[in-house]
Simulated scan of single mutants.
Amino acid sequence: MAKAHRSLGILDGISRKLPNLLMLVNTISLQEAKSSSEIENIFTSDDILKELLNDLLIFLNNDEKYNIDPLLKMAIGHYQFEAIHPFPDGNGRTGRILNTLILMNKGLLSHPILYLSKYIINNKDGYYHHLNRVSSRGDWKRWLLYMLTAVDETANYTVMKIEEITQQFEATRTHIEKHFPNLDYAVIEAIFTQPYIKAIHLVNEKIKSRNTARKYLDQLCNIQVLELKHIGNENVYINNDLVRILEST
């Protein structure tokens, strides 16, 4: 458990060094959305749904009555939520987002940047096995160890991704400034907030007008920072370096 806490602390600390946290929040959450679609739910709903959810909320929020380590509370809460199965669809995805929100609520994370779906996909058999062992045999120990390992390894993986994104951001910024020394820094940040961008994104963020935004994005294509793709009637600009980082294991 100490190892998982230490890894979370390192992750939370290094995330604060990013020039724009959206660089991480948006890109990591996109990975979560992709990963979550590959995981199925295994439990059915219950007639006493409201009572069960209320009990779960009390367990999660009443730290005086249930004074246990936040990581253990997260793991127990995740099992309970999946067992309650309150929705017809999307329970697994919601449960994994709940993990992150619990860690933020308990002060272990400052921002929603830890998503466990990748680990669970890579260890899917163990996930279902340990969930079922809790239900059938009350075997909490192996389930808790599984979730602590998931937190530890996912935190370390996310730290690695932060470092890769930060290094690529600096390399890209240096490359852009050689060609366009007066380019607004906010534009450089914007192309790292998600793997693709459109001119309207810069307009909505009040960075540039539509025509100026399109001109800047086209210029970044000319120096191979972005790649222009025509999707329907829209021009979409792809940050292939960021895509490469997010898709690599």
Rank of each mutant, 00 (worst) to 15 (best):
A2W: 10
R6A: 12
I10D: 10
I10V: 06
R16A: 11
L18I: 14
L21Y: 12
L22T: 07
L22S: 10
M23Y: 04
M23Q: 10
L24P: 02
T27K: 01
T27Q: 08
S29N: 12
E32R: 00
S35V: 00
S35L: 05
S37K: 11
I39V: 07
I39K: 04
I42K: 06
T44G: 06
L53M: 13
N54E: 13
N54T: 15
D55E: 13
L60D: 04
N67A: 10
A75P: 02
I76Q: 00
H78R: 08
Y79I: 00
F81G: 05
F87N: 04
G90D: 05
N91I: 04
N91A: 03
R93Y: 01
T100F: 00
I102L: 13
L103F: 03
L109T: 08
L109C: 02
H111K: 14
H111G: 03
P112F: 00
I113F: 00
L114D: 03
G126Y: 12
G126V: 03
H129G: 04
H130V: 08
L131H: 02
N132K: 13
V134N: 03
V134D: 02
D139Y: 11
T149E: 13
T149N: 10
D152W: 01
I162P: 02
I162A: 01
Q167S: 12
Q168C: 10
Q168H: 09
T174V: 14
K178W: 04
H179C: 11
F180I: 14
L183E: 12
A190V: 13
T193H: 05
T193D: 09
P195H: 09
K198F: 00
H201R: 08
K206F: 09
K208Y: 13
S209H: 04
R210T: 09
R210M: 12
Y216G: 01
L217A: 09
L220I: 01
N222F: 08
N222V: 07
V225W: 09
E227P: 07
N233G: 14
E234G: 01
N235W: 06
N239Y: 08
R244V: 03
L246F: 03
